[in-house]
Design a protein around this nucleic acid. Structure first.
Length: 436
RNA sequence: GGAGAUAUGGCACAAUCUGGUACUGCAACGGACUCGAAAUCCGUCGAGCCGCAUUUCGCGGUGUGCGGGUUCAAAUCCCGCUAUCUCCUCCA
């Protein structure tokens, strides 16, 4: 949610910044006109309420003294009716203002490149393992025997998409045997790394209520992509960001505790509405996938430094796994609804010769905190909104996909990255296992 | 799943039957006393949210778990909901 006072006082600037996020200027004009109307209505009804309160006090005083107050009571009957009518009118205006405001995306930070879509994103840096060119699939040089991760997974018998589709539907799968073990090794490794970096590990509810989905910005605008629980005001989470960030909804955090850092593994559920036909094979785009998430609550003056360090925490995973990647800053047109600034980390997928998103790290500034009312007391003891950040650290399935492609060998086996071997009982290689 | 009870400031509680300025204590804050502190005494104290005003003190509205209703007036009466506790049932 944007700050209404900022929008009122800086209409022209706000209109331009919203335009950068793809919101036409009329939306803001409409909002501010309704806001004006609402404030006038409030003044009108509050005057009547002040009058009613004063007269009610007099009535109470008269009653205590056993005096007759029927004249004042009769006079107040009309006032009471007027208040009721004006209150309901104002409730309608409140809803309209709230509804318009709730659909406006966050404003982008000053350094974010302005552009309509991903074409305006700006690459920040590229990383690859020092030994990468000793592997047979360095950037830009894919040998013909190189397979896609799903081909490797099926050949080794560790990813079963067919039975996933049979039992659940398209975009669901089973991990089998070493596949399941590899997935488990990957997320245990990630959680251990983040725990060492000071994140508190959490196990979270995977079903959340509508208030929580509103708080992080998924609702009301993006309900189509969510798995709602039939008949209930609850949703299977699209990301652990929702329960992690809402953990402190409505609370005032002790200033000395900031920043607070959480991490959690969870499944994420997405309908992928509008992605029909895209990435239909493999681990890239599923209705259910595991993700290790990071969330931070910070003071405003530290949030951008914390964004950099959270991005570094995500990059650390890829570096320790020896997976090449680059970091891009998303443009105003490519950022998510709640974000003020976002870095995407994209991992190199050698078979397709493309970078694929494996992490997205965002500072939402006070956008979510305002929706959720998460505050702290500053040095002057004044309540201030915290800043919230979230980032994937990382998408687990896509990490497995990247490992399979980047560590595959010509004989069809896959070398397990050294960092994961302790999590797999010292196992060094994935080889074909029996099918059932 | 069934039955009963509970929900009031930062905390603990009163007022609810019988509608009329939400009690008291602790904590907190300011002051007195003191070399200083403790104790004691005096004073302030409904967090948050909304609107108006703003150099400053401010004024008004809302606010007794949440949402409605009745009433001149609701913590109090009525309806619905949520959470918590106890018992029964079930269960990993």
């Amino acid at each position: 949610m944007l700050d209404m006072k900022y929008l009122r006082k800086n209409e022209a600037e706000a209109a331009q910044r919203l335009l950068d996020r793809g919101v036409p200027a009329e939306k803001l004009q409409e909002l501010l006109a309704l806001d004006q109307e609402r404030r006038e209505a409030i003044q009108q009804v509050e005057n009547l309420k002040a009058q009613r309160n004063a007269v009610s006090d007099k009535i109470a005083y008269a009653k205590r003294n056993k005096e007759d107050a029927s004249e004042a009571i009769a006079a107040m009957q009309q006032v009471g009716a007027d208040i009721k009518a004006l209150d309901s009118q104002q409730a309608i205006l409140d809803d309209k203002v709230q509804n318009l405001a709730a659909h406006l995306p966050n404003l982008a930070a000053a350094e974010v490149p302005v552009g309509p879509d991903e074409s305006a994103n700006v690459e920040q840096r590229v990383w690859e393992p020092v030994d990468y060119d000793t592997r047979p699939h360095a950037l830009g040089e894919a040998p013909s025997w190189l397979k896609a991760h799903y081909e490797i997974g099926e050949a080794l018998g560790i990813l079963d998409f067919e039975r996933g589709a049979k039992v659940s539907g398209a975009r669901f799968l089973y991990y089998v045997g070493d596949g399941a073990r590899l997935e488990r090794a990957v997320y245990n490794f990630m959680l251990d790394e983040h725990r060492q970096e000071g994140y508190t590990e959490m196990i979270i509810p995977i079903v959340v209520n509508d208030t929580a989905m509103f708080g992080t910005g998924q609702y009301p605008k993006f309900q189509d992509d969510a798995y709602r629980v039939a008949g209930l005001a609850q949703t299977y989470i699209p990301t652990a960001e929702v329960p992690l960030t809402n953990y402190y909804a409505g609370e005032t955090l002790p200033s000395e505790d900031l920043p607070i850092k959480f991490t959690a593994l969870s499944p994420s559920f997405r309908k992928e509405a509008g992605a029909a036909g895209k990435d239909t094979r493999g681990l890239i785009r599923l209705h259910q996938f595991n993700k290790v998430e990071m969330v931070k609550f910070t003071k405003p003056e530290h949030s951008y430094a914390e964004l950099e360090s959270m991005t570094a925490n995500a990059e650390n995973i890829l570096q320790k796994l020896g997976l090449p990647y680059h970091v891009i800053m998303l443009s105003t047109g490519d950022m998510g609804f709640s974000a003020a600034k976002t870095y995407d980390i994209e991992v190199w997928m050698p078979q397709q010769q493309v970078y694929r998103e494996i992490s997205s790290v965002s500072n939402t500034e006070d956008f979510q905190a305002r929706r959720m009312h998460i505050t702290y007391r500053d040095d002057n003891d004044k309540l201030q909104l915290v800043h919230t950040l979230n980032g994937s650290g990382l998408a687990v399935g896509r990490t497995v996909a990247a490992i399979l492609e980047n560590y595959q060998n010509e004989d069809g086996t896959v070398t397990i990255p050294a960092a994961l071997r302790p999590y797999m009982g010292g196992q060094e290689t994935l080889t074909a296992t029996a099918h059932y």
